[in-house]
Design a protein around this nucleic acid. Structure first.
Lengths: 220, 220
DNA sequence: TCTGTTAAAAATATCGATATTTATTGACTT
DNA sequence: AAGTCAATAAATATCGATATTTTTAACAGA
């Protein structure tokens, strides 16, 4: 009598459901940075038991979204301009590395998946699921590095960056940039297998966003 | 009536105790790579409840020492020569970065802590606690990077490397190297604030160990 | 007023029992 | 023999209750 799958709101396990919800709440800022995360409170909010909440929080620790202090519970990872700067720097180094490895090892499958991810992202401009498609595109760039740990680091850092994007976006996103064109450029360079050009385009894409976000984050 | 502190074998919390024990067992190979980690089994082994074991395993996931598969439990992270090569590569890139930042921002305190860590390590050559002192020395090199996430990554990767050292060391460690001299060299360069030289010495130190370990890991 | 102490309240950590899910076994069919 | 399928066994996930620890608040002494 269990119909639960990707389509259903219900997750496969209570822990996974709690993990997803809490992750989303931290990334969007529904749970503010630095906030104490009380088990009982979250248990009621998510309408589940204490064990799944606790386990989900432990898991979120891996993603650096939650801090755990022995014997005194959990809190949402604090946010600061220093932390944001660190994330940007690490992303640039690690994605550069992953990207170059991906291109060095380039295969037709990798290229096709990349084109596909880009296409899907374009279709969804503005949609709620655009964020997901955007991440999938960027991860598709790195997906051929044959370095799982490196990709995991990049994925984590990507999410942390999204979080700052959300924290900053009270005054709506008005940049004089053509993000779509930047993505096209990145894709074109990658398909051309030009590692230097792709890296330049990608890092510039990140650094422009980073510089813009930094100006919005003065209140942190 | 609780006297538990650093000196006592008892840990502050059951979870922390389980975390430390399991971590140690995985790093030393007492729990072999890839092995299924059954809660009930570990519960009895560590003489504690299922909750602390479960939480400790969730936490070890952050360190990439344990894999968690939803609904079908935990297993010790698998080991492979590919994985080892990846760790070595990432370490070289990330420690290089952290080291250079540390030296750029060098302060007398940093330098003094480094000298101290080196001295302590020398005293303990061969002792059981040498491993700890060795790690403290290497982390002291990076400790001034003002990049906590980067230091965390380096620490994680350091531990993963130790694990491979242990996995390989069935046929005892007989290399024609003067590890002590290598450490002296690294320290001297760092104190001289010569980032290029320190980095060269450090990375060579890692790569020599890496190359040696790779020859020992054929059986993986 | 400040400081240190202690009782009460709140929150975390842990346990033991139970519900769910996955893995295994072996009979039964093709 | 190989492959299904159902029944059983094993393991994981989850719950609800309790023990421990930390935090808060009230208060006495300097």
């Amino acid at each position: 009598m269990n119909i639960m799958d990707e389509t259903s709101g219900k997750e496969a396990s209570a822990t996974r459901g709690a993990y997803m919800s809490l992750r989303d709440m931290i990334l969007t800022g529904a749970l503010p940075a630095g906030e104490k995360l009380k088990i009982e409170q979250l248990r009621k909010l998510l309408d589940t038991g204490a064990s799944p909440v606790r386990e989900a929080l432990s898991l979120l620790t891996s993603d650096m979204l939650v801090e755990r202090i022995d014997q005194r519970g959990f809190r949402a990872a604090p946010a600061s301009t220093e932390n944001f700067a660190e994330i940007l720097k690490l992303r640039c180094v690690l994605e550069d590395m992953a990207l170059r490895q991906s291109i060095t090892l380039a295969t037709p499958e990798w290229e096709e998946n990349l084109v596909l991810a880009h296409h899907r992202m374009k279709q969804l401009t503005g949609a709620a699921t655009f964020e997901d498609a955007h991440k999938l595109f960027h991860m598709a760039l790195l997906a051929n590095s044959s370095s799982p740990m490196l990709e995991r680091f990049c994925s984590q850092l990507y999410d942390l960056n999204i979080r700052y994007r959300n924290l900053a976006s009270s005054g709506r996103n008005y940049q004089k940039r053509d993000i779509t064109a930047e993505h096209e450029e990145i894709l074109a360079c990658a398909v051309r297998r030009d590692a230097d050009a792709t890296s330049t385009a990608l890092l510039s894409h990140y650094r422009l966003t980073g510089a813009y976000l930094t100006t919005q984050l003065v209140n942190l």
